[in-house]
């Protein structure tokens, strides 16, 4: 049983349509995200995945369609969901700790107060001892974790992650996935996750939407009924490979 069926809907996206000039990028996409559910979007590069996220975050208005969060219409409204971009987008002029504080400061807390508040999360995100570094002094994996930590500090119950491990090597990526699952267990959030990596999607998700190439539309929805908590042994299992084969066939 996926948690999708057990729990109520947190986020509903209805019939999104979006063009840039004459280029149709999103063509009638509908998605659902249940409470505490982890859902991945997988699809070819340039298909319109980030555009869908920008619309959900309220940064872009769709030409057609709606974004509904807990029953309320949030189309074109910002500030409701935590959004981690494809790029880490850490501010180069702020120390790691201040970058992480950003959502707290924006919502009105003072810098010292915000710093006190984030301090205790540094071990959880594996950044202990790097509070006073500048972003360029961190490795790629650490920058991603800092960006993730900042996203987390926004402390919304809905989190959008756009290819958070896209630029990482296989070893770092695998570590980050294990670590993400661990963190997520403590978070109790609902997560939408974009990736190119089929194994990553299966490993992390409760459900996967397989998208077509541009313009993006939902080709199929795959429920991942693999047991949790998951470990890397799973990747070599028969069930895992059956799902992988199935998704590859769709794509």
């Amino acid at each position: 049983m996926s948690s999708y069926r057990k729990n109520r809907e947190k986020l509903v996206v209805k019939d999104l349509r979006k063009s840039f000039d004459d280029l149709l990028v999103v063509d009638g996409v509908s998605l659902k995200l249940g409470e505490h559910e982890f859902v991945s979007l997988i699809g070819p590069s340039g298909s319109g995945k980030s555009t869908i996220f920008n619309i959900i975050a309220g940064l872009l208005s769709p030409d057609d369609g709606k974004v509904i969060i807990e029953g309320e219409d949030y189309t074109g409204r910002t500030g409701r969901v935590s959004y981690m971009y494809q790029k880490d987008l850490l501010l180069p002029w702020k120390k790691v700790i201040d970058n992480v504080c950003l959502p707290l400061v924006i919502s009105g807390r003072s810098w010292p107060e915000a710093r006190r508040q984030v301090q205790k999360y540094f071990p959880l995100f594996g950044l202990e001892g790097f509070e006073d570094r500048y972003p360029f002094q961190l490795s790629g994996g650490m920058r991603q974790r800092a960006a993730l930590m900042r996203t987390y500090m926004f402390s919304s119950d809905i989190i959008l992650l756009d290819e958070p491990f896209g630029g990482l090597d296989a070893i770092t990526k695998s570590k980050m996935q294990d670590w993400l699952l661990e963190v997520l267990n403590k978070l109790q959030a609902s997560i939408l996750f974009i990736t190119h990596d089929i194994e990553e999607a299966i490993f992390l998700s409760d459900r996967i939407y397989v998208l077509s190439g541009r313009p993006a539309s939902v080709k199929d929805e795959v429920i991942i009924d693999l047991p949790k908590p998951r470990t890397k042994d799973l990747i070599t299992s028969r069930e895992f490979n059956a799902i992988k084969r199935y998704i590859l066939d769709i794509l």
Partner: peptide, 23 residues
């Protein structure tokens, strides 16, 4: 994208200016 990121966090114009544009 940095400007958009701040907007997605609900930052005001003044905050966007102070935190991103000016630096």
């Amino acid at each position: 994208d940095m400007l958009n990121l701040l907007k997605s966090m609900g930052a005001s114009r003044l905050q966007v200016f102070r935190l991103v544009k000016f630096p």
